[in-house]
């Protein structure tokens, strides 16, 4: 049996910094996304939107609707974080449809980075919106006895966010790999189709959960 590693291979080193494959893939995805958005938004029209503009507006509108539905506030300041989470994760999850590409979200480093960003964003926004004391007071609810549990929940839910996304994508990658190693032709296609659904659903879930955490922190909804 061939040795399987759960870590992404190191592509090259920049001085002491090792640059993994997922980082390189992320850079490529970033470039593609920015270029697409740059050329897609160059000629925006109020009256007669072209097909590209309609697609972009639909994506942005979808993210705005998530924020509006879940948090119950206007999306304005949260749109860059939430929207980018969805777009980036969805793109990463769909990237293995191209042959030879390994999704960056299959590695715990990437999802850990996303989880950390959500973690710090939640607390930063909570403190910013409520004030430090008011925000800390939410950890004493419903009873002061629950403080350790509340603090622990902050870490476990971030950890579960990370493991959920990486575990889903990585396990599905492994499943497809095993199926391909068993039957190489046609049979993996349904699994690949399933990977589209799983990828989009996981991106949606990650975004929704991040929105719920932020909404709970800034107090527009019950803390989840």
């Amino acid at each position: 049996m061939e040795k399987v590693s759960l870590n992404a291979p190191i592509v090259f080193h920049v001085g002491p910094v090792p640059v993994g494959l997922e980082v390189v893939t992320t850079w490529v995805i970033m470039v593609v996304l920015v270029v697409l958005c740059y050329f897609g938004t160059r000629k925006l029209s109020v009256d007669e939107p072209g097909p590209w503009q309609v697609v972009l507006e639909a994506i942005v509108g979808f993210c705005e609707d998530i924020i509006r539905d879940v948090m119950g506030t206007e999306p304005g300041p949260f749109l860059p974080l939430i929207g980018t989470l969805f777009i980036y994760i969805a793109t990463c999850n769909l990237s293995p449809l191209l042959p030879g590409v390994k999704p960056p979200t299959a590695s715990f480093e990437t999802t850990g980075a996303l989880g950390l960003i959500v973690f710090f964003s939640v607390h930063a926004l909570g403190v910013q919106r409520r004030g430090l004391l008011h925000y800390l007071k939410t950890f004493f609810e419903p009873y002061p006895v629950f403080v350790p549990l509340n603090v622990l929940a902050e870490f476990t839910r971030t950890f579960s966010l990370m493991v959920r996304l990486a575990g889903n994508i990585m396990s599905h990658e492994l499943t497809i790999g095993i199926v391909i190693s068993l039957v190489g032709l046609l049979v993996p296609i349904p699994f690949m189709a399933l990977s589209i659904l799983i990828g989009l659903v996981q991106a949606y879930i990650f975004t929704i959960l991040a929105t719920v955490f932020i909404g709970g922190a800034i107090g527009t909804i019950e803390k989840g």
Binding site: S160, V163, R164, G167, N168, M170, S171
Partner: peptide
């Protein structure tokens, strides 16, 4: 996610 934890 629970099943995924187990899978991980």
């Amino acid at each position: 996610t629970m099943a995924i934890y187990c899978l991980v």
